[in-house]
Nucleic acid binder design. Sequence first.
DNA 1: AGCACGCCGACT
DNA 2: GTCGGCGTGCTC
Length: 803
Amino acid sequence: MQIASVIVDVPTKQTDRAFDYFIPEQWRGVIQPGMRVIIPFGPRNIQGFVIGLKAESEFKKLREIIAPMDLEPVLNKELLELGNWLTESTLCFKIFAFQVMLPAALKAKYEKKVKLAIGAAVADLPKPLHAFFENDVLLDWEDALKSGIVPLLQKEAAKGHLEVIYMVKERVKKKQQKYIRPAVSLDELIEEIDRIPAKAEKQRQVLRYFIENFNEVELKKLVTDVNTSVSTVKALVEKKLLKEFEMEVYRNPFEHRTFKRTKPLPLTEAQQTAIGPILNALEQNQHEVFLLYGVTGSGKTEIYLQSIQEVIEKGKEAIVLVPEIALTPQMVNRFKGRFGDLVAVLHSGLSAGEKYDEWRKIQRKEVKVAVGARSAIFAPFENLGIMIIDEEHETSYKQEEMPRYHARDVAIERAINHNCPVVLGSATPSLESFARAQKKVYHLLTLPNRMNKQSLPSVEIIDMREELREGNRSMFSRKLFEMLKDRIEKRQQSVLFLNKRGHSSFVMCRDCGYVVNCPNCDISLTYHRVNEQMKCHYCGYESYVPKHCPECNSEYIRYFGTGTQKVEEELGKILPEARVIRMDVDTTGRKGSHERLLTDFKDGKADILLGTQMIAKGLDFPNITLVGVLSADTMLHLPDFRASEKTFQLLTQVSGRAGRHQLPGEVIIQTYTPEHYSIELAGRHDYDLFYQREMMIRKTHHYPPFYYLSLITVSHEQLFTVVSATEKIVSYVRSHVSNEAVVLGPAASPIPRINNRYRYQCLIKYKREPNIIKTLKTILDQYQKDTKSGLQVSIDVNPYILM
DNA sequence: AGCACGCCGACT
DNA sequence: GTCGGCGTGCTC
């Protein structure tokens, strides 16, 4: 077993396979599958992942592994296999599959340096280079480029005076802290204390500290505790009475926070019924997927917490996924509060080093629970007892770059390996999951009521066409304006929600709300400012913007879009007395600002919280009694077959922010299409009916959950080349799928040109195509192999964004 | 992804 | 005649 199969850190088709390396004697038995190694590859040294060991290789002239990068594997057997599964199911390069499972800190950094060759001296070099190589300094290649001395360097390298070296570096260092411990026995210390000179009172104090407390202590703590200086301690170290050493410490992102410990709350009857089957599956070590469907505020989190409690008691581990945007301190508090130090938190707000440390706690089995966004599903636990995905319907669980995986699929794949349950929780389950629950593929658990029997807030839908007709051209309906004013007087708080996704605008009649749709796809056409056209991004249909509305003949037909800043300005005009906090990407950019704004609002420093997406989730403040949605339509007419579903989910989510405590809540939804079922049914809190209506539409238009989708995107600098290549691909696909499948295209991508490359796509809708992955792989192989044609082909299996 | 090898244009 | 442009093909 002296040969290692290695996946190299070069993400191309040609290198997407194992390369064999000889393991030098000194590393035999040390290097294991799942470790990162430094290997020579061509002229440079790069990082690679060992995926297997073997005794022989077909390749004769093997090179040697330079060094391992880990003391123990960073990927265990399960994760290595999961990597293969990811590669297969998402059609990505192996290296991406492995990298996505690890914290970014473990991704290699490469440095190219120039150094004096062995046996060469500075004097051998021409004068201008002397300064660069004094004292054996390594010259950074980047600096060399800037100084314009590369030709000189190359000349000297050719003469053998200089050497180019390639270094593989870690991104993040383990944080070390200095510790002090006694170097002699307790008795000896007591003896020695009398030999300390009388003048050195401080040294005596330090020794006394160790006599009372015969243990290691952090240098800093020692210095403050004894009120002395580092030099005093160093003197004792010199005398060999104490010993200094370094120990790895974790960066603690929660250093200045305390978590109030909570105890399991008594469950309501509904909660008990819901948790039963989960506990049962845990008991039996049985894999099962549960869909926990519970209205906002129905106590899903307590079910998660108590299920995890059970898992921990069984000595197993748990992963909890939360959408990034909802990974607020409030959410973290609930888990830290219940399980304290047994929780690792992984989210984008942490620095690379902090994330790495949290990940290490998991790897070293120091924690039992990982709470985090999408990628936390790869937490390297070895004894998983449960995986929970909260807000299961969130689209952020799908990664939009390689590997294009969905966390839900990964969770289920891992759960099968671990024989453990998966819990998907949502107030508005995705149609895919709910349909599976209906078909008994998933086990449906329901929490139909809010805790403490509060009723869901009353929702009023305001027809903005009516407002316009009556002369109100502002973005606030009279009703919303009145209610905002009322809340300010009553010193209660309001939340205003605006969806700013107005960029890829749709065309709508402001009189009757008519939106121009594609005749083939039942999806709104996207407005393009260039030559005033509207296009369908699914099938390629085009038409001009009508001068008059085809429904009511009004001339107020135009494209749409507004932003939070504009709303804030207008709010300042009509309600100058209102104190407003605006929350969007602009105001929450800096670390911690998100939390600060929310705390300000919670503390009553503002009357109105105005924001986008990010305020839709998790907000749970007692004083919020009014929620206003300024324009429910913005999302509805995006060129996306999930637009209705997303609108329904969002409106339900936002409405859930109101009246979660004693004070009853009210919700105002402003819209130009009040009769649209997703708006109307969100207003009535009727998920079931929404589900039925939407399923019918999905069925007739061959969309998920009735059909699977795969999207092939082709790009090239020349329009003609893209179109003809896409045509070829489309006909290849057509000839390789059953006639049950629908193959659409070639159609221009919703973003028809990126970086001067034209983009075309082919959308495949299918039910049962056992060979589809093979077919798609053949296409990728074909086009990724030849780099000279300049064609780029990418495939998204089960896409969420069809762009 | 890099990098080397290699074959054609504008310069000392 | 040489320096250097970037097209093509390889990396165990």
